[in-house]
Amino acid sequence: MTITGIAAIGAGLAAIGAGVGIGKIGGSAMDAMARQPEMHGKIQSSALILAAFVEAVALFGVVVAFLQG
């Protein structure tokens, strides 16, 4: 396997992690919104921010893949 292939696998693994993380954030945010519809806006914006933080980790993986690619 070439180094590019390994990098692609790494990026994929990072995407799995971030997917799980963002999924959890999304699920919890939905839960919270269902419980407290009046807090909808606040929950949504903080969920987006948190998703951005989690996503950054996956993007570091993507960048490493770019480095190799």
Binding site: L59, V63, F66
Partner: peptide, 13 residues
Amino acid sequence: ISLMIRLFANITA
């Protein structure tokens, strides 16, 4: 740095 990477990687990806 994470700001930089996030925007770059999101759009490029």
